[in-house]
């Protein structure tokens, strides 16, 4: 028992330090150029406000989450309420004052379809 717990203790710090070192050594990801993305207005986004087609605006970008909703940990109605709207607040607070995890933020990438422009 003593040996196993000690081995796990060492393995834990080894893996944490490996990740820290890798993160420190790898180059900063280059800022992506979003200017080529299609442009949408809030009015256009608002047309996609149901589970059949669910677009959301998060931090100035437009996402189509239609395919993702069944995989989200909450019941679909939680995400549905934000379809067709500016939903940064939902992402940042989950409605309980807690931000989504870094992994959750990274998971949005494949659903990005455009950027918001201020018009009308």
């Amino acid at each position: 028992m003593k040996k196993i717990t000690f081995a796990a203790f060492v393995a834990f710090w080894a893996s944490v330090m490996t990740v820290a070192a890798m993160s420190w050594l790898s180059p900063e990801p280059a800022m992506r150029d979003d200017s080529a993305l299609p442009e949408y207005t809030l009015k256009e986004v608002a047309e996609h406000d149901s589970l059949d087609s669910c677009w959301k605006v998060i931090e100035g970008k437009v996402y189509d989450f239609t395919e993702y909703i069944p995989d989200h940990p909450t019941p679909p109605r939680i995400m549905e309420a934000w379809c067709g709207r500016e939903a940064t607040e939902a992402m940042r607070t989950k409605g309980i004052g807690r931000d989504h995890s870094p992994a959750a933020w990274a998971m949005m990438e494949p659903y990005l379809i455009g950027r918001l422009i201020e018009k009308d």
């Binding site: 990740v19 995890s101 870094p102």
Partner: peptide
């Protein structure tokens, strides 16, 4: 002892789950 082993694995597993999105995401998770 079981609790310690499980709780040592807990953050490492969550970190690995996030690592698919890049080192930075794994790091930010930890």
């Amino acid at each position: 002892a079981a609790s310690l082993l499980l709780l040592l694995a807990h953050p490492v597993l969550l970190m690995l789950a996030a690592a698919g999105h890049g080192h930075d995401v794994a790091m930010a998770t930890l």
